[in-house]
Design a protein around this nucleic acid. Structure first.
Length: 113
DNA sequence: TTTATGGCTGTCA
DNA sequence: ATGACAGCCATAA
């Protein structure tokens, strides 16, 4: 099953993230089978092609905020995209992970109150 | 083949 | 609550 690249798998998981929800690298990694290798997920995002329909902006770090990658500036862009998705950002540019954390088991579009 | 890097995570102070 | 350190592993050259 596993090919030499795990990236496609990661992309597939990220694609499964519904709008208005965010997933952490560790979570995506776990769903992609790379459990424990969140770094590779982040690196996969860095290797994302331009024409990919992968909502990489919905993938954030475990702290619930966008990661200050080496690009510089894109983090602001990501935040903008997330705000457009309806992600409530904190005063420090953080999101309530507990509120927007994507649960692969409730992707039907329901929020457990 | 080896070397270097990296959009992370978890623990300690 | 934040700041700092070390570990893990896949991809690219």
């Amino acid at each position: 099953m596993n090919r030499e690249s795990s990236y496609p798998k990661i992309y597939r998981v990220v694609r499964s993230i519904p709008s208005g929800r965010v997933a952490t690298y560790g979570q995506v990694a776990a769903l992609a089978g790379l459990k424990g290798h969140a770094r590779q997920v982040g690196y996969a995002m860095h290797a994302l092609p331009e024409g990919s329909d992968v909502p990489w902006h919905r993938v954030i770090n475990a702290r619930g905020e966008v990661s200050p990658r080496s690009d510089g500036g894109s983090e602001h862009f990501q935040r903008h995209l997330l705000e457009e998705e309806g992600i409530p950002f904190d005063d420090r540019g953080r999101v309530p992970l507990e509120a927007v954390r994507w649960d692969p088991d409730e992707e039907s579009g329901s929020t457990p109150l």
